[in-house]
Design a protein around this nucleic acid. Structure first.
Lengths: 227, 227
DNA sequence: CGGGTGCTTGATACCGATCAACCCACGTGG
DNA sequence: CCACGTGGGTTGATCGGTATCAAGCACCCG
């Protein structure tokens, strides 16, 4: 089993630097720290499954967590890839009984786990907390809507270009990007099969994108924008 | 221009019966009613556009509102279809500056319009209000995630079957459904071209689904579930 | 009766999934 | 040092699903 740990100093610092916690006042932080545990998972471990009773929501401290759904015939679709600092499953704070998707550790992962019931009570008392929840939910809702629009409007290459542009510093002519995870995971994040991502990289070569392992060189940012 | 109206008695009743308002206590309701206007739109009118400064969020009182994005080459993708009682654009309460999508009246529509800035202040003072916002955001987030998973996992027929099942009373053997809007809009809601929806209906005929105008007869609910 | 509009049907094209083979980098053990 | 296996990635061939384009149909309303 996964050991249930107290917050050590490093995890504590990491946690306090996440956007979610950083927006809280000192008192709210104190009280949130009271209801948190730290848990480690190994690659491919499941944090929870669809339809399982929901007792916690999470914040990623290190590593990546993959949220996905399964279809009846066993195929799976990623819903979201959570990076360090990301909060997930917080939508269950509003009366959810069960998880609506599966969560899996991509690599070795450390997460902060908040007790739903106690945070619900806390949100009632601390305005800061309910504000932070609203901010987090809003951001996730917007990015989900983005995702829907992208899925419906963009081709594989355009989605990839869009992702690469997101990673580039705002106003640069060229850039060098290091992928934070495997390409197969990026494929899933973009709603593609790994082969399709590979082909998308190939066709983007003609737009000045070169790939060496996890490192992507973008020669002409503006060229990408013209897709 | 669209006339800006006070709440009349009928609109007031409608508004108070929406899930969003119904969850509030009497005092919170009173204060929310202070910051609301009622607006009418004709079919195809735009309520707001992408990238426009956001001043309000909305609740549909009658008719349907279509939320959509445009791609560079002019194609559009629906993000959500809002029915009477639905709230939309409330995600901008958390510090959004501009709308992230377009909103269009499908038919003649009446909406309640809430001033974002004043509701932000209200949420600070009335726990009920921030709770209602959290509930609304959570529901929308979950349904967006559903949408993503469905887009990525299901075929056109399966999506249609899924939609029809949603409309059926829970434990019925057969059902008769009346679509609340045109088929072309349903197509958009499901992320399909109208032709694809039409074909999906055709192939579902062999599963006991018959169509007459807006009225759909589902002979065998369980047959649908087996997709 | 004429002319919308919304829907259906058919033909075709395109995109991406899938399956299979291969490549490469790496680690392991003989 | 080399044979081997493994896992991630690429490449090619094929298939299926849906968009797109075009034409025809049904209904409503003037």
């Amino acid at each position: 089993m996964n050991k249930l740990l107290k917050l050590n100093q490093r995890d504590r610092t990491t946690l306090l630097h996440t956007p979610f916690m950083a927006s809280l006042g000192p008192l709210a932080i104190e009280r949130m720290l009271d209801v948190v545990n730290v848990v480690n998972y190994e690659a491919r471990d499941l944090l929870f499954r669809e339809r399982e009773p929901a007792r916690s929501f999470y914040c990623v401290l290190s590593g990546h967590v993959r949220l996905f759904r399964l279809s009846k015939d066993g195929r799976d679709a990623n819903i979201r890839i959570c990076c360090p600092g990301d909060v997930f499953a917080e939508c269950l704070l509003a009366a959810g009984e069960v998880y609506h998707y599966n969560a899996q550790a991509v690599e070795s992962v450390t997460v902060a786990r908040f007790d739903l019931q106690r945070v619900r009570m806390l949100a009632d008392e601390e305005k800061d907390v309910s504000k932070a929840i609203i901010t987090s939910l809003s951001a996730h809702l917007l990015s989900s809507l983005d995702c829907i629009a992208n899925d419906r409007l963009l081709t594989a290459q355009q989605r990839l270009a869009h992702y690469l542009l997101d990673q580039c510093p705002d106003d640069s002519q060229s850039a060098s990007i290091r992928l934070p995870f495997q390409k197969s995971l990026l494929a899933g994040k973009l709603g593609l099969a790994p082969e399709a991502l590979s082909r998308a990289f190939s066709t983007l070569r003609s737009a000045g994108v070169t790939v060496r392992g996890r490192v992507i060189e973008v020669a002409d940012v503006n060229a990408l924008k013209r897709l």
